[in-house]
């Protein structure tokens, strides 16, 4: 904030110094007003669904009607929230048990893979990398039928255990990609120096690479956390309302013909809170990491 004001002052002063004609200043002011008007207009558009979600979650049954979607509640009620909470609470617990380990494990494996592919290259490493990467883009529908068979043949129980396995496996390609791009920016000399000191592949990882991996881990963990938390496709095929994650429970709460709108809107908010918190707290790092990754592309 303080740097922003300093910058602004500098800009103002240099504008004065230049004694540029008033016309240009005027144009700039119009441009700026237009710019903020546009930005605020889009903020309103983007927030509209969130507004409806929020106010409807506090409405009573009769009040929660699509024709009254834009109006504030006649009376603020919390019945919807209570119902949504009791319906979703068990699945929320299961989702945490699913999402945290799967994010940690695939991030760790991705970090090792990215390190090998960026800094400990072997002949054919590029081909191997491309083959792994392709796994990130496949539509999972193209493996789903035999996958259900394979998972049951392996004896992995339906519900959280199956989903844990699947999120780790199918998270590997993107984790590997992000870490490989991240480690590509690490100077080779660091690795060489460790090698000269006689450190092996794991020692080098532990002493040189891992300690500087925090930014990569932040991006990968956020990514994996959100995509596993929000997954519905695997959950639909490998779990039920009884043993599934929160997306499944929410789809049951909100589906059907006689929907309790207040409760389903409250449920949608409850189910979104963890990922929202992650974005609000860590979104900056996420965008930063995304940028470093995509610029390298």
């Amino acid at each position: 904030m303080s740097t922003a004001t300093v910058n602004n002052k500098n800009r103002l002063r240099s504008a004065q110094d230049m004694k540029s004609d008033a016309k240009r200043n005027n144009k700039r002011r119009i441009n700026r007003t237009l710019k903020y008007a546009l930005l605020i207009f889009f903020v309103i558009i983007v927030l509209l669904p969130a507004y409806v979600l929020f106010i409807t979650s506090f409405k009573g049954t009769a009040d929660a009607d699509p024709s009254r979607a834009w109006y504030l509640p006649q009376t603020w009620e919390t019945g919807g929230w209570a119902k949504a909470w009791t319906t979703l609470a068990p699945s929320l617990g299961r989702t945490v048990i699913l999402v945290v380990p799967s994010a940690l494990i695939s991030a760790f494996l991705g970090s090792i893979n990215g390190y090998v592919l960026a800094k400990w290259r072997f002949p054919g490493a590029n081909i191997v990398f491309t083959l792994i990467l392709f796994g990130m883009f496949i539509p999972y529908q193209a493996v789903m039928i035999p996958l259900t068979q394979l998972v049951s043949d392996l004896g992995v129980p339906q519900g959280i255990p199956s989903l844990l396995l699947l999120h780790i496996v199918y998270g590997l390609p993107i984790c590997t990609l992000i870490f490989r791009n991240y480690y590509a920016t690490v100077p080779d000399e660091l690795i060489e120096a460790a090698r000269m000191d006689g450190a092996g592949i794991l020692r080098t990882y532990g002493s040189v690479i891992f300690p500087i991996s925090a930014p990569g881990f932040v991006v990968v963990l956020i990514w994996q956390f959100t995509s596993a938390w929000n997954d519905y496709l695997f959950a639909a095929f490998f779990s039920s309302g009884r043993n599934g994650p929160v997306t499944i429970a929410l789809s049951f709460l909100a589906g059907g013909q006689l929907t309790d709108y207040a409760a389903s809107m409250a449920g949608a908010l409850i189910a979104s809170v963890p990922t929202l918190i992650v974005y609000i707290l860590l979104g900056k790092y996420f965008v930063g990491g995304l940028m470093s990754g995509s610029v390298k592309g």
Partner: peptide, 20 residues
């Protein structure tokens, strides 16, 4: 603000969009 909808699951946002 522009980025936040990305953090929400399609299932959750579908609840409100079905209405809208």
């Amino acid at each position: 603000v522009y980025l936040f909808p990305m953090s929400v699951s399609f299932i959750a946002s579908g609840v409100v969009w079905r209405w809208l």
